[in-house]
Write a protein that binds this DNA or RNA. Structure first.
Lengths: 166, 166
DNA sequence: CTGAGATAATTGAGAAAGTCAACAGTTGAA
DNA sequence: TTCAACTGTTGACTTTCTCAATTATCTCAG
């Protein structure tokens, strides 16, 4: 929205009509859960934009990232960690495998499991993607100081990984 | 790349360290954007559970909440604020209107716009839903102290609403 | 006042994502 | 061995997302 010269013009403007910012004072806008959802929306939108040039989305990027983590995740673990259905992991790994970024490797200890490992091309792709995602993330957090960014990340970590029971 | 310091455990390479918690040390698990997405997943899952008894979801709850805010939002404003397509707002308002929770009111200043206002039953429904959602939210934040919860909410607020000033 | 362009709500279609049940191969234990 | 549980996979189904087109209304230049 281009806030041009008419931003100060009060053309008999009614008092209750101000613009969408007035909704910032709603109860909903003060619920942590809603704010997390909105933050995620903003973040994933930006991330998807920068990832589009690499033909990736946040989903496939997440799988690629974990495949490159050196932690040798199985598909079941990817599903559990990313809160996705195992069948969705199948599709995501299919795509990444088809383009030569990851490989399914049989787990020698449990031949039911597929361990997802990156190829050389996959590692390179991840390096590029991670750089772009991180840059976009910094941009999204530009309202916060470096200290505050660390604070936010640590608080989110504790909430995001708190529910190990249920 | 992943210089996971072997400070806690002496297992330098994790060949098959059981448990999904080992993925907490991945790069992905330290990206704020990913943590926001996971926090939102946890939160909306819990919220949807408690809202199911009232035949609501987070989406319809959000619309109902804003309708009850006294801020007289139009459908277009709801769409913009909730990052939803206007056509999705139509469906959500249709549902809420059909069950008698909200009403479409013509905006006297612009007859193209529908202002969404709650009925008496809608206000009551929102009161019940808000209480349950808040309780679920407190439960989800049980890992944080009251001070930390406020901190988190304020940091999220600044990030979630930062892109509006750009 | 009138016509052109913009905006709000609505509808419908198609793509993407989420959910769920069933199945084959494998594992671990009685 | 036999059986219950688990992993990955497929397919069907539902929900959500995205976008184009339509109608009614508004704004504004001429």
């Amino acid at each position: 929205m281009t806030e041009t010269a008419d931003s100060n013009v009060r053309t008999a403007a009614p008092p209750d009509e101000a613009g969408i910012e007035r909704l910032y004072s709603s109860e909903l806008a003060n619920e942590t859960e809603f704010l997390a959802a909105r933050t995620r929306s903003v973040g994933s939108r930006r991330a998807n934009e920068v990832l589009a040039s690499l033909d990736l989305k946040v989903r496939s990027y997440s799988v690629l990232s974990l495949a490159c983590s050196g932690l040798n995740p199985s598909q079941r673990e990817l599903a559990e960690f990313l809160f996705l259905d195992p069948s969705q992991i199948v599709a995501l790994v299919d795509q990444l495998e088809k383009r030569g970024a990851v490989k399914r490797k049989a787990d020698p200890r449990d031949r039911r499991s597929n361990i997802i490992t990156p190829t050389a091309a996959g590692k390179k792709l991840y390096a590029e993607a991670a750089a772009e995602v991180q840059a976009a993330g910094e941009s999204a957090l530009s309202a916060l100081s470096p200290d505050e960014r660390n604070q936010l990340r640590d608080l989110l970590r504790r909430v995001a990984f708190a529910d190990q029971q249920d």
